[in-house]
Amino acid sequence: MKNVTRASGWGERLIEMLLLSCGLVTVLTTIGIGYILLSESLVFFKDVSLMQFFGDTQWTPLFADKHFGIWPLVMGTLLTSGVAMAVALPCGLAAAIYLRELASPTLRQWLKPSLEMLAGIPTIVYGYFALLFVTPLLQEFLPNLSGFNALSPGIVMGFMITPMIASLSEDALSAVSNDLREGAYALGAGRASTIFRVILPAARSGIAAASLLALARAVGETMIVAIAAGQQPRFTFDPQVPVETMTAYIVQVSMGDTPQGTLEYQTIFAVGLTLFAMTFIVNIFGQRLARGKRS
């Protein structure tokens, strides 16, 4: 092996280096993200103190009376993601159990790709659906629901990330050894008790990993909330009123006529850094859990 490589000379070496540099582009991307977010946020934090950023509950950088408290945006993000998880976790888990433990192979062959289709639809389409179909539908039952709210985009986002939870949880379920299943059946347990008492507990870290990765996805989701949740940063727990997420704020400023280089414009990098930190932490925990499951 070694001789072959040596005999083939520098041409082979060059190719290997070229391929390696392709791989290094991905590392440069990470460095680039970190550099841009940090350096541009630093410009912002020269004028706005961390105390103002984390100690205020109003976010009004585009108004005359400026407040730079990040919490309303964080709250909006958590509210929409929370609704999404409340939909996606039960649905995704149920779907995973059904596909993996209950459905016949033929049925599974049809259902799984149909479910995966949900993940392939562009988020702008979900935004349209949330604003113009789901919100009016919900207003039939909830007369107080405003035209822009956290509930409707949250639900739609939940359906969007359901396939992600389903397929990752399904992997976790299949990783549970068949001996456990058969052991439970041999002891006279029914399907339901086998699944709830034996299989789900054995797969719990994989399912937790799936939930965390999906949560990060929901936190970073942009177009659905930009279209259907509104553009009013508000510190509230009420999913019926307009809110604004971190991602939607970035879109709002990018679409607007805020001049580049101003403090107002610089806010999007500080918000971006906060968003990145949140998704990064959630992802790290998710990946660690997922790896732990495998080994």
Binding site: T29, I36, N283
Partner: peptide, 28 residues
């Protein structure tokens, strides 16, 4: 070790929200 590092890095990049890539593109 290098390629393992690159692979882990690619895994984390896949989880970065797309709007953050917008900020990267704007800056770079």
């Amino acid at each position: 070790r290098l390629s393992r590092f690159i692979a882990i890095n690619i895994g984390s990049l896949a989880g970065v929200p797309s709007v953050i890539y917008g900020l990267l593109g704007l800056g770079i």
